[in-house]
Simulated scan of single mutants.
Amino acid sequence: MFTADDVLALTFPTGNSFVSGYAVDAVDRWLGRVAETLRAYEGQPDGEPLMRAADARAVRFPERRGEASYEPMPVDDAIDMIAATLAMHEAAAQR
């Protein structure tokens, strides 16, 4: 299960000029929203629940090439783990 700090510490390999990857700026902004959501679940005063697990599963990023992109597979793996974390928080909140 990820914490807000874990999400903010994520790093991904950058893409190359030959293969499309996910736009760095879009991924980084999205991770900031994820961290803010997790802060709310963690009870931190600066957190706000901005997304649900379904939102994480549905996210799509613009494509880029080169240094302005992240390799898709590691980002997709992180999205899966983030969605699972959000689902666990949502289930706990419904109890």
Results as ranks from 00 to 15, higher is better:
V7W: 04
A23K: 14
V75H: 03
A4M: 04
D76I: 10
F18K: 11
R33H: 14
Y22Q: 02
A56G: 05
N16E: 11
R60V: 13
A78T: 08
F18H: 09
I82P: 02
A87F: 02
V75R: 03
P45V: 13
V24T: 14
A54R: 10
P13V: 04
E42W: 00
R60F: 06
P45A: 13
M81Q: 13
T37D: 00
R29M: 12
V24F: 07
T85P: 12
D76K: 10
G47T: 00
E36D: 14
E90P: 02
R95V: 14
P74Y: 06
D80K: 14
A53Y: 01
G43W: 02
A83H: 04
R29L: 14
T14W: 09
T85W: 06
W30T: 00
F2W: 10
M51A: 06
A4T: 06
V75P: 00
E48V: 14
L86N: 02
L10S: 05
A68R: 11
E36W: 09
M1I: 08
Y70K: 04
A84E: 15
I82H: 04
A91F: 07
Y41W: 15
E90F: 06
A84L: 15
D5T: 09
T3Q: 07
P74I: 07
E42Y: 04
A58R: 14
V27I: 01
A93F: 04
R57S: 05
L86T: 01
S20L: 15
S17D: 15
P49V: 09
I82N: 02
M73E: 14
G32A: 07
E42M: 02
P49R: 11
A26H: 13
R64S: 11
S69D: 06
I79M: 15
P49W: 03
L10G: 10
L31R: 09
S17K: 14
L10Y: 05
M51R: 05
H89P: 08
R29W: 13
D76N: 13
S17G: 13
Q94F: 11
L10D: 08
T3W: 01
S69A: 15
A58F: 08
T85C: 11
Y41V: 00
T37S: 13
D46Y: 11
L8M: 09
T11Y: 10
P45Y: 05
G47K: 07
E48W: 12
S69M: 06
R33L: 11
T14G: 10
Q44I: 09
T14Q: 14
R39K: 15
L38E: 01
A93T: 08
E36V: 13
G66V: 00
P72L: 09
V27N: 00
D46M: 12
R52E: 10
A40C: 12
G15P: 05
D76A: 12
R60M: 09
R57P: 05
A23Y: 10
I82M: 08
D55W: 03
D80S: 09
A23P: 03
I79Q: 15
